[in-house]
């Protein structure tokens, strides 16, 4: 067990956990934020996506102790960190079906819009390809991203 410092949604946390714990399980089991989801554990589905210094990152394979004082934003902190328009657009399009993957989808979209505020359709597809939606809500996710862009996108 080791002591790991994390900065999540603007708040500092000090956790006692396994030396090699991935950020996903540090967030879910130790910080107590469960909006970030486990699904594959090998960075193939995107359900666990968080922003690390503004970059969409798969938390299931990211060692928590490697993050130092990096700014981590999870779905719980997205609204006050520039992502509210995305969440509102997701609601406007009534995007989710089961909803389990959607936090990861929204965070990936936030990462995209932070680096590329006005992406083309192909750029959206490419940036979002790592996020699987088993219910197949892809058409609505894309529409929601476009709506969010129209309404001001993501404030960095």
């Amino acid at each position: 067990m080791t002591s790991i410092s994390l900065k999540v949604n603007g708040k500092a946390y000090e956790i006692e956990a396994e030396d090699d714990i991935p950020l996903l399980w540090a967030l879910r089991d130790h910080v107590g934020l469960v909006g970030t989801k486990y699904s594959c554990g090998i960075a193939q589905c995107g359900s666990c996506t968080v922003l690390v210094n503004g970059v969409a990152t798969r938390s299931c394979v990211m060692p928590a102790k490697s993050l130092g004082d990096a700014e981590i934003i999870t779905i719980e902190g997205l609204a006050e960190n520039g992502g509210k328009s995305l969440q509102e657009a997701w609601v406007e399009h009534d995007t989710p079906q089961c909803g389990y993957c959607q936090a990861g989808q929204i965070i990936s979209a936030a990462g995209l819009l932070k680096s590329n505020p006005n992406p083309t359709d192909d750029e959206i597809d490419t940036a979002m390809k790592g996020n699987v939606c088993r219910c197949g809500s892809y058409v609505r996710i894309k529409a929601a991203i476009k709506t969010a862009i129209k309404k001001g996108g993501v404030i960095a």
């Binding site: 934020l33 469960v34 909006g35 970030t36 999870t74 779905i75 719980e76 997205l78 609204a79 969440q87 997701w90 609601v91 009534d94 995007t95 989710p96 909803g99 959607q102 936090a103 929204i106």
Partner: peptide
């Protein structure tokens, strides 16, 4: 969907 707000807020 009655849970949509909770879903997008995580």
């Amino acid at each position: 969907n009655v849970d949509v707000n909770d879903i997008v807020e995580g």
